[in-house]
Amino acid sequence: MDDSAAKPAQTFRIETAGGAPRIAASIAVLIVLVLALLPMVASRTLVQDFIFLFYMLALAQCWNLLAGYAGLISVGQQAFVGLGGYLLFALTLIGGLNPLLAILLAGVISALCALPTALIVFRLRGAYFAIGTWVVAEVYRLVFAQIKPLGGGTGTSLTSSVTSSVPGIEQVRALLDVRTPAARDIVSYWVALTLVVATLAAVYFILRSRRGLALGAIRDQEAAAAGLGVDIYRIKLAVYVATAAMTGMIGALIYLQKARISPDAAFSVLDWTAYVIFIVVIGGIGTMEGPVIGAVVFYLMQRYLADFGAWYLILLGTLGILIMLFAPRGLWGLILNWRDVTIFPIGDG
């Protein structure tokens, strides 16, 4: 039984590397190169906008991996964004570490925290798991609100000595002849770009691995996957912990860029989960291309409509519901109906 489960996976892998995806890969490399060079010419506002776009996209890919592939519908990913952010503050302000090292460490510690968290929330199934993760995020928020050295309920700011201690700022300032704050943004931009590319690559390789193909099986039919000898629990646990690590690092980066943290903002369900879900749903859940499209759409809406405040959020909620009801595969699904294309050849379009 185990052998027969493994064999299709082998043939599958051969079939998924066709000629068109290779062209797509070259295009992807080109896009990353262009993006990497963008700050040389772009305005500071545009650089900041792109940082926002990058981290929202990275968060969306993480949530998509959880919900779209592993069937772990979480509404509590703000737990790890906030945890990563607070870890960055603790490690730099109190620990005196270099911020870049702190981002990496935030990922490791987030993964370590995710493990016991998972052992508890995994006791809840299906939809109840969703609310369980939300409770856990609330617990994280309330606990960090109690930590006085990090500002308790009101929060705290990074000192300028921390924000300017990121390696590379001096060189960028000298090289591009910009002021320190702009140089800081450019370095953050590159860190964010690195993170989003790393997240995309990580998700891509997880999904292309044998485990990833097993994930597809979980999504399609949990009982059948179990029948094939797939250890669902362990795979789900691995995905949960891996996304927590990625989400924690993204959170650390977000709050390095923001330089100010408070429990209510860092553990905000709206900012770090609702928006992220919106991106995935509008783009197309269960695909890697969907969140990319969703992130761009969300960025444009945020840029031009966010001033409408409550009405803007009502619009987001309504759009999300309509997409879920009438086009559950999102914009990418609509594109696929129209033309059969794949950018990330994972195995199912």
Binding site: V75, L270, A274, I277, V281, L313, I314, L316, G317, T318, G320, I321, M324, L325
Partner: peptide, 9 residues
């Protein structure tokens, strides 16, 4: 997700 959207609305 529909009830989550409803919550925000």
């Amino acid at each position: 997700l529909v009830t989550f959207g409803l919550s925000i609305i």
